[in-house]
Amino acid sequence: MIQMFHVSKSYEGGVPALADITLKIGKGEFLFITGPSGAGKSTLLKIMFGSEPPTQGQLILDGRNYIKIPQPELPALRRRIGFVFQDFKLLPNKSVFDNVALSLKVMGIPPSDVKRRVARMLTYVKLQHRANFKPLQLSGGEQQRVAIARAMVKDPAIILADEPTGNLDPELSVQIIELFKEVNSRGTTVVIATHDKALIEKYARRTIALEGGRLVNA
C-alpha cells in the first residue's frame, strides 16, 4: 500500500530530517513509528501524505511510483488518507461539528449524510456535548479528539496519526487506540507516530524506530 525507497529529506537551510529510508507498509497493517523528539517521525508521515516532498528517493502509493506527488492529484489522495496532525490544524472560527464535517464536505457528501456521520463520530470520541464549541474553548485533549474525529469520519483507506495521544491521559489514550484498532479491523491501514513506550509495549504491533532520521531496530 505504501512503499518508500531510499527516501531522504532535508529541509530548507539543509537541516537533514530523514536519511535513506526504505520501508513497506502493507494494506490493513497497524504500525507504530517511534523515536525521540526530532527523529523525523512527523516528516516521514508528511512525505506519505504529500505535504512535504522528499529530497531524494521514491514513493509508491497503490502501485504508482512518485518522486513528487503532482499538485492536481493531492486532493484525491488526501480524501483517502485521514491525517491527525500533531498540532491539530483545526479551524479556530468553526465549531467542532463544522471542523469534523469539513473533511466530508470537501468530498461533496450530501448534508444529511454529513450530519449523521459527524454526530456518530463525535460520540465515538466522546465529544457529542461539545459539538457547538469552538476549538479554543476546548482542552488540549478535546482538541486532539476533534482532530482524530476529522481524520476518521471519512472512513479513509489509510490513517496517518501524528502523536494522537500526546495530550491524552493514559485512560483516554487507551480508548483512542482502541478506536484506531477497531477502524483497523475493518480494513483501514493505520500508522501511528508516538514516543509513548508504554502504549507500544501494550499493543505489541509492528514498530519501526527512527533516530536522527535513520531507521534503527526497535
Binding site: P75, R78, L90, L91, V106, M107
Partner: peptide, 8 residues
C-alpha cells in the same frame, strides 16, 4: 487546512 483535508 482546507487543502490538507482534501479540498480542491
Amino acid at each position: 487546512i482546507m487543502k490538507l483535508v482534501g479540498a480542491s
